[in-house]
């Protein structure tokens, strides 16, 4: 579904990502992991159209997506969340989601109905009339997801949505994504540090380090990979 082929990006001479290639097959859940500063969010931003790669190709459903603006990437069917959450603070939780839903819904009232169903899925229904600025961080992360889902993406990019959640909340979120993946066929690419969630969700893991991919494969193999253990998980990791 999404093919990333040799993308690179430098910021003022610093190579953030170099020659990264990976694939996200339709219906899959793929995790992008690695230490801080490895270039994970830079990869996301390139896919999402925030900036173009210096080199390399990206195709989504056999259509080139490099050089598209973020709104065009969204229209192509890729939804995203932000690691540093960006709620529309002055609007209510429901209105936040309606903005996303209006992307595919014809009018405000149908967008409202659809948005309510998404809020229900993410356990935010009770807070729908609160201003987004009053939400706690975990709720804001949920709101990020709700808003992105409202645009009816085929591929969802999740940037550290589990960070700051308690283990039980984390498991609930995992259930939500699993359900979306199974019943709605949503493809997911996630950046995550919470290995508990990664192991529970991902069928495939890509490990970035200093902008380069150092390992990839099934979760069970990747977490035993000596290179990954050394740079990221630690020698005595138990996952």
């Amino acid at each position: 579904m999404l093919t990333v082929d040799g993308i690179s990006k430098s910021f003022r001479g610093l190579k953030a990502v170099s020659q990264a290639s990976f694939e996200v097959p339709a219906g899959a859940i793929v995790a992008l992991i690695g230490p801080n500063g490895a270039g994970k969010t830079t990869c996301f931003n390139m896919i999402a159209g925030v900036f173009a790669p210096d080199a390399g190709q990206m195709t989504f459903e056999s259509r080139k997506i490099q050089g598209l603006r973020p709104d065009q990437v969204c229209a192509a069917g890729i939804g995203r969340t932000f690691q540093i959450v960006k709620p529309f603070a002055g609007l209510s939780v429901l209105d936040n989601v309606i903005v996303g839903a209006l992307h595919r819904e014809k009018n405000v009232s149908s967008a409202r109905i659809f948005s309510l169903s998404i809020l229900k899925k993410l356990n935010l229904e009770a807070k729908k009339d609160l201003p987004a600025s009053s939400l706690t961080l975990p709720d804001r992360k949920r709101l990020e997801v709700a808003r992105a889902l409202a645009t009816r993406p085929k591929l969802l990019l999740l940037d550290e949505v589990m960070a700051g959640l308690r283990p039980t909340e984390c498991d609930l979120m995992v259930e939500v994504f699993r359900d979306l993946n199974r019943s709605d066929g949503l493809t997911i690419l996630l950046i995550e540090h919470v290995m508990r969630a990664v192991m529970a969700l991902a069928q495939n893991i890509v490990v970035l380090h200093h902008g380069e991919i150092i390992a990839r494969g099934a979760p069970a193999e990747v977490v035993r990979d000596p290179a990954v253990l050394e740079c990221y998980l630690g020698e005595e990791a138990e996952v």
Binding site: R80, A89, R147
Partner: peptide, 13 residues
């Protein structure tokens, strides 16, 4: 008005 970057990510030109 609230966040232009987020607006764009939601498909708004």
């Amino acid at each position: 008005r609230e966040n232009e970057e987020a607006a764009q990510a939601l498909g708004i030109n």
